[in-house]
Simulated scan of single mutants.
Amino acid sequence: MNNLFVIKIGGNVIDNPAALENFLADFAAIRAPKILVHGGGKIATRLGDKLGIESKYIDGRRITDDETIDLVTMVYGGLVNKKIVAQLQSLGCNAMGVTGADGNLVPAIKRPVEEIDYGWVGDVAAESLPASRWQLLLDNGIVPVLAPLTHDNAGHILNTNADTMASSIAVALSAVYSTRLIYCFEKKGVLEFVEDEHSVIHTITKASYARLKAEQKLFAGILPKLDNAFAAIDAGVKEVLIGHADDLLQNTTETTTGTLITA
């Protein structure tokens, strides 16, 4: 099987032009099939403030009303996505900007209203994700750059979690490629001691994860990321890596510097 890297970058990279430039240079240098999934950063919030559109959050999750979905569609699918594509093209990387709505690349449903109405927010319908369409792009030398937007099959754009989109794509393509899913965030990896930036746990298996949780060695905020990582591995992804954006190239090799999560 050929290797495939599905790489997700967060807002901390997108919000810093110098960090984004360095990251994209490294991404362009990866000599293997690859997909980039990006979030939106704080750009939508800043632009919304200028336009008089208030940002509303519940438990850290954006409420996406009618005005906000227009805003994030413009920013995520337009401004952020196309700037990334243009920079990658300048580096000789044949990038193509897409959303989950384009070609129905990431099917989704509108999140049902339960205790909270999140508005125009989508949940990925992973079982329907068309791996063959992604493979068609990759086989033709195209590097997809995916913005975190989907649609509801009724003509409405949906704001959708980029981490979940990346994981779902990695799972869908794991039957065709040996897939490493890489989450780039602000730490060097999963830390054994949250106050010690150098205490990176370089490998976590299911067995060691159970032990670390029992010993309460991991801070609570990382547990959902690890649970999602093992869910992806259970669904066919070979490896998941959590590390810093600055270490991207190293983390596409066999001698990783972040936290490599395996079965």
Rank of each mutant, 00 (worst) to 15 (best):
K42P: 05
P130L: 07
K213F: 07
L181T: 13
G52M: 09
K83S: 06
Q87L: 06
P107L: 13
M74T: 07
D117V: 05
K42Q: 08
I233Q: 09
Q216K: 09
F185Y: 13
Q250S: 10
T73A: 04
L249D: 08
I84A: 00
N81F: 10
L105H: 08
S167C: 13
P107N: 05
N161M: 07
D227P: 00
Y76Q: 07
A18R: 09
R31N: 06
G41W: 08
F23I: 08
T68R: 09
T255A: 15
A18K: 12
K213A: 11
E254F: 11
A229Y: 04
F23Y: 06
L249F: 15
H38G: 02
K8H: 05
N104T: 01
Y57T: 06
L173H: 15
I201S: 05
Q135G: 05
A86K: 12
A32T: 11
T64L: 03
H198F: 14
V121G: 06
G92C: 08
A18C: 02
I63N: 08
E195W: 13
I233K: 15
I14G: 03
S174W: 03
K110D: 01
T150M: 10
K8L: 05
P112K: 03
N159G: 13
Q89G: 09
L212Q: 03
I204F: 09
H244M: 15
P107W: 08
R46C: 02
A19P: 00
G141R: 15
A172T: 15
T64C: 02
A207V: 11
E127L: 01
E114L: 14
V194N: 13
Q135R: 09
L181F: 14
H198P: 01
S168V: 08
D70A: 01
A44Q: 05
P107E: 01
G141I: 13
T253R: 09
T255M: 10
A95N: 00
